[in-house]
Design a protein around this nucleic acid. Structure first.
Lengths: 179, 179
DNA sequence: CTGCAAACGGACTGACCAGTTCGCTTCTGC
DNA sequence: GCAGAAGCGAACTGGTCAGTCCGTTTGCAG
């Protein structure tokens, strides 16, 4: 997350507006949405955005960190894998930009990668728990769960337009495959 | 597929070059690859492409039809769902443009939609067969299989760069979930 | 208050891309 | 083997987008 100190009050206000607008614009339009659209929604000029975020990728990274923090919060309070996957997918699918960013260079940024790793830890903990309880096969790895989580998310984003919520059915099917 | 009659020999040669170049460029670069790149690889000018394909989407549709025909050929000779999904995913994952096109307006074109439906039929036939044999739960639908197929494909494309072939493991896991 | 650094935003730049124009080249029917 | 139709592609157009410039405004310290 961007933490600017000694920021003039108007600049601070604009920064918050920009981040909120960016979250909304990129969630709806994906990574290809334009910075000009973000500026328009935030009610600022494009220059104001580029002053805080030198490149569009910097802005995207900030948005992504916000989204990942949201995912992390949910990951840390969930008690079962099914509950966790459903809660996370709800967020994941409503923000196209997260899905599109997976596998892009954005996820290689240290801050983003670190957050992703923390989400992975929470996931790994629940996975271990369910493996001990015999609810999940012993040979399933964290990478397996991450891949399948992402898979349902990606496909869910694509079908969300035509058949909203269809992805919910597949959380159970995938988890059944891990049993 | 584009079937031009009474085409001068040089025009016919160029058309074939264009389609082959387009297949390669869009497979590697996805839907956002430029028509200029296709022209360069084919060794023609952009005008030559736009003469045969009035818009970029027309060119993409032609490429997509070629890819879907390939998928169809594999779908029609497979004998088990596992075999079919693996064979189809191999193609699917090596051509980024197919995955990106799923859920876009391209799939709403009559020719493309018809081909997709034919692939679906082959899939449905195998699905029925495995359901009768008790290898698949009775409440699983064609849409379920298509969703999960697409899900593994999408995620596979994203991980292919870093861990090629990782997706193979998940065909079995997903099928286990359907049992 | 007031001076001025900090911040602003509209207008601009350069790069890129889909699609068009047009003068030139090449096949082909006779 | 030649006339002209069919085809060609380099250069151009119009539009979009990331990122910059610069004259103007605004918050704040003294």
């Amino acid at each position: 997350m961007v933490v600017e100190t000694h920021l003039r009050s108007d600049a601070q206000r604009n920064l918050e507006r920009i981040l909120e607008a960016a979250r909304s614009v990129f969630a709806e339009g994906g990574l290809d949405a334009s910075v000009a659209d973000v500026a328009a929604l935030a009610g600022v000029g494009t220059a104001t955005i580029f002053r805080r975020f030198p490149t569009k990728d910097d802005l995207l990274a900030a948005v992504l960190e916000g989204e990942l923090n949201g995912l992390l919060a949910q990951a840390e309070k969930a008690t079962t894998l099914a509950e966790l996957m459903t809660a996370m997918l709800e967020r994941y699918i409503s923000a196209r930009c997260i899905c599109e960013a997976v596998g892009s260079e954005l996820f290689e940024r240290p801050d983003v990668a670190a957050l992703k790793a923390r989400v992975g830890e929470a996931l790994a903990q629940l996975l271990e728990q369910e493996k001990r309880a015999g609810a999940i096969r012993a040979d399933i790895t964290l990478e397996d769960v991450e891949f399948l989580f992402n898979a349902v998310g990606q496909a869910g984003v694509q079908t969300e337009r035509t058949t909203p919520g269809a992805w919910r059915r597949y959380v159970d099917i995938v988890l059944a495959g891990l049993r």
